[in-house]
């Protein structure tokens, strides 16, 4: 079935390092050419927009990880020739956490991270 291709090991990873290892990413370098677009504070922890743009030539793979989620790897994308390295989705976040974008370009891995705050809310000016 199509399901057989789904990377069960990566999606089951319980830590960032474990996920990096399964994906063969080792210790990816932080790169300014990987841009992670998220809100600073989540309006709704159940629906947090996350966008990744890679300016690295030869970007072939993009993954989104939420460090403090029980299932840390949220989504991964394979980018064929002709498709831009620019994807956007929405994820669940149970608590304030760093969000990671992992990018593979020309066979090497890079990353960016950003904190997204999940708050109780209810005050205001």
């Amino acid at each position: 079935t199509a399901h057989a291709a789904w990377n069960e090991q990566a999606f089951g990873a319980k830590s960032l390092d474990a996920a990096f290892e399964v994906l063969g990413a080792g210790k990816p370098a932080v790169s300014d050419d990987v841009v992670l677009n998220t809100p600073d504070i989540a309006e709704n922890g159940a629906v947090v927009p996350v966008g990744v743009v890679s300016k690295l030539p030869g970007t072939e793979y993009v993954a989104i990880m939420i460090e403090k989620n029980p299932y840390m790897l949220a989504a991964s994308f394979t980018i064929p020739e002709g498709t831009q390295a620019e994807v956007q989705t929405r994820v669940k976040m149970g608590q304030t956490s760093d969000v990671y974008a992992l990018v593979k370009a020309d066979g090497k891995f890079y990353m960016a991270k950003k904190e997204v705050k999940v708050t109780l809310g209810g005050c205001g000016g």
Binding site: P39, D40, I41, E43, N44, T119, G121, G122, G124
Partner: peptide
């Protein structure tokens, strides 16, 4: 939608 009830504007998102 954080400081005030989100259910009052359920179909609108804000942010900076």
């Amino acid at each position: 939608p954080i400081a005030n009830p989100r259910w009052m504007t359920p179909d609108w998102s804000f942010g900076i």
